[in-house]
Design a protein around this nucleic acid. Sequence first.
DNA 1: GCGACAG
DNA 2: ATCTTGTCGC
Length: 241
Amino acid sequence: MNLASFKNLHPWKISNEEAKELQKKLAGELKFTVLGKLPRLIAGVDSSFIQSGEEEYIITVIVVLSFPELEMVEKKFLTNKVSFPYVPTLLTFREGPSFIKTWKRLNHEPEIVFFDGQGIAHPRQLGMAAHLGLWIDRPTIGVAKSKLFGIEEQTPVKKGEWHPLLHPEDRHVIGATVCTKETSAPLYISQGNYITLEDSIRLVLSCVNKQRLPEPTRLAHLLTEKVKKEKKTLDLQDSEE
DNA sequence: GCGACAG
DNA sequence: ATCTTGTCGC
């Protein structure tokens, strides 16, 4: 059983100010390289939460799909207690610890990972996908359903159409709004680590079927809902599959 | 001071 | 993210 590798870069339980300083420092370590060859395994990550009295639990799901077939190769989930609250721009500190624990249990090594959140389209250029891309040291993409940071000057309306997301200060490109389904709101795509924006958009689009979300993200989300439903029916004990 | 604000 | 019924559209 090969466990997915990662680098333990820093502790997670730090103050908000320390977290922001850490983001500024880590952002300088990102690499935006062109993808060498197409991946054979792509992972999708998603989390959901359960409130139980004073305690809050996070259910993190990672699904691994074959590419380009997009068939399920592995599913893994963990339930953990969470203490870090949701703070805009510090999402990684809330979901990161649980992601890493789940990642360690994977029996496959995905070559690319899709996260539900931003890549570098973040005030300090280190959204969750970029941050965790440094931890797992491989290509990652931010697939967000809404905007956190940036200026959009046009809305894509045809499937496959996209427009750059610009930095508010110098207007350089930090991501893109991508139409993955007509009549649906666009997705906010931005590169995480070891990938370019163009490759990110290309990969996300090649993982889209008939729905708005690309399969890795969509299937991880469905599983997260399923696990939560079963969890609520029983009790709240740490568990795994 | 005011609005924005991933999940 | 979560709380929530029916309802409109592909």
